[in-house]
Design a protein around this nucleic acid. Structure first.
Lengths: 352, 352
DNA sequence: TGTTAGCACTCATATTCATCGAGTGCTAAC
DNA sequence: GTTAGCACTCGATGAATATGAGTGCTAACA
């Protein structure tokens, strides 16, 4: 069976109506409210065909039709109109996101809030993954008699540090030397590759007198690397799901919260997605807990290098057109906010 | 009217029953299940008195009695039995909380998770406020030609830093000098008092040649101080409220999520509470959004100095005895986990 | 051959009504 | 002061019924 022009028109009308009403769509309503150019009876026949083809389902015999994941997919790919964001909303978004690059975390958390507010869904944002980032600088600084601070700077100037309580007394010169050796050794290496490094033997081989110190530093070093690799996940707008008919069923609401509560799993899921604005619908998401939800994510970049994600999660019946547009516009603004003001550097990722 | 022995007994029975059943308690049920030593009719009379005194209410004429906030308060203060935590649960808690002081954030977030799981309520934890903490060390390190890192260490060895993109070229000597002057000037000052400091004029007065540099550093300095003063709020167990009868009403659930979603307000509310295990019931909480909830918070200390809070939030009908015990035990363990292993320092706060 | 009107049938939802029972408050007797 | 007895209240439960949007099928039509 073919997807004729008319079938597409009907499908589009059904998806569009259902997205706004959350009510199964019947043939008569459709013929009245849309200019299909066919009677209710004809539409009924077409609907029956569409159901056979897997685009529609039937909650029960005497109810109207409801789009399947497959229908939403078709809708998103080719049926939906492009949503045009009103100028005043654009302006509001832009104004909210003016920021300094040093406050990445706050800006991001703010962007997530904004997204929840704009879409009236649950939104999230993850800080950029540092995995592939290169180490740039390692320094261990004496602070007082028994404290030093280990500081690791990545190529993108993200800094992470840990205070170290020194067991034995130490001398500043050794620390300085150790810092130099460490920087020399590991500068340029990807941060995630550092977990596999055995700094104790490396130092032992190269600068045996520093061995003891290296041993003492090692756990903190490892720790700091791990912390650098961690990303944060911000979630906002959980309360919004209560205004969505799909979640008036307590069980559904609970499942939703349960799923969102598993931050680790959610973070991984989000990070593993492709770049750009990506829509996944119901079953396409994989995990059982997301069978009735859709995810829309987008990628933002910091200074053209670090890459993070943000997006929304909601029922499969979602205002796809509007939301993809908003997310896209939001990330464009984030990219701009996260671009270095001037003093660029020896890298790609400059396009304006 | 007096709270006779019998009235107290009845009140205790009602609160105890209601906490577990969530159903209004009637006189007959009470006389059957508890050894009050009076008939249902007598109990009825007493209940009527208790209602008049404000300890009980009536959802409707023909329903049993429900405790008021005032009753819960009396119950918490003097009626409830002390809950004894089973040894095996104690062991489980202790094992979960072994930690290193360097990973305060992770341990805390973990403690919050654990608390949600143990209480089957919504839990939260805030990182310690740094307001009163003293500055110990300021350093601005050259990283490469156009980047430096500003690092501020507090007396308790919490470190915060920001990468600074230098506008003009700078020389390492000046940075070092500036660091020294800054440290000398501000060492020992409370972090929150630093927001009022005008480092530009201070430097101008003391070391005029560094003025230009100070100007360049200033925004980052301010920023870093602000970041140090920020606390994080972890929330867990949001999904738990769906198993609580009080929140099967969608509206209540939404209000709850709304309230928890206002993280700033919630953080402030938590931080402003007194030390120790504190219970506030319904209207005692202040804000309208918490009129039907109770909060239990406790204080943990890091190395006897920094002080943070954690706790749970749930319906006023809460297992107060069990939960206060669990929170108390948990914070004791946290205190232990956050105590420095050895090499103590020149300070108070050592008690074991 | 595709389209349409007509009609019987389905089934979730809303409404009404009676019943049930836990609980109260009051009275009168102990 | 305590208790038994009793009328009364009122939410909850459940059966019976009506409603109506919607379907699928058939037969007529262009």
């Amino acid at each position: 069976m073919d997807l004729t022009e008319r079938k597409l028109k009907i499908l589009q009308a059904i998806v569009g109506d259902f997205i706004h009403s959350a009510e199964p769509v019947g043939s008569r309503t459709l013929s009245k409210h849309h200019d299909i150019g066919a009677s209710a009876a004809t539409i009924r026949n077409e609907m029956s065909d569409l159901e056979e083809m897997g685009y529609l389902t039937h909650p029960h015999t005497s109810a109207g039709r409801v789009p399947s994941d497959k229908a939403y997919r078709l809708y998103v790919n080719s049926l939906m109109d492009k949503y045009v964001i009103p100028e005043q909303e654009k302006k509001a978004i832009s104004e909210q996101l003016v920021s300094k690059v040093t406050e990445l975390d706050k800006t991001l958390s703010h962007a997530s809030e904004l997204l929840a507010q704009l879409t009236k869904l649950t939104s999230f944002a993850v800080t950029p993954a540092q995995d592939e980032n290169a180490l740039k600088y390692i320094n261990i600084l004496p602070v007082d008699e028994n404290t030093a601070v280990l500081m690791i700077v990545a190529e993108n100037d993200r800094v992470m540090n840990t205070a170290i309580r020194m067991r034995s007394s130490y001398d500043a010169k050794s620390l300085e030397l150790l810092s130099k050796v460490l920087t020399k050794n590991y500068k340029g290496r990807a941060i995630n590759s550092m977990l596999a490094v055995d700094i104790i033997s490396d130092i032992h081989r190269e600068a045996a007198p520093l061995s003891q110190l290296a041993k003492e530093i090692e756990p903190s070093f490892r720790n700091t690397i791990e912390n650098m690799l961690d990303v944060d996940l911000y979630i906002n707008g959980l309360e919004n799901i209560f205004s969505i008919p799909e979640y008036t069923d307590l069980n559904r609401a609970k499942n939703f919260m349960d799923m969102v509560g598993h931050k680790q799993a959610l973070t991984k899921l989000i990070m593993d997605r492709d770049s750009g604005v990506i829509v996944t619908i119901g079953g396409e998401n994989g995990p059982e807990s997301l069978k009735e939800s859709s995810l829309i994510t987008a990628t933002y970049t910091v200074n053209g290098k670090m890459v993070g994600k943000l997006g929304v999660i909601g029922p499969t019946r979602m205002r796809y057109s509007e939301i993809t547009s908003v997310i896209e516009y939001l990330t464009e603004n984030l990219d701009r906010a996260f671009r270095l003001p001037e003093g660029d550097e020896d890298d790609e990722g400059r396009d304006e």
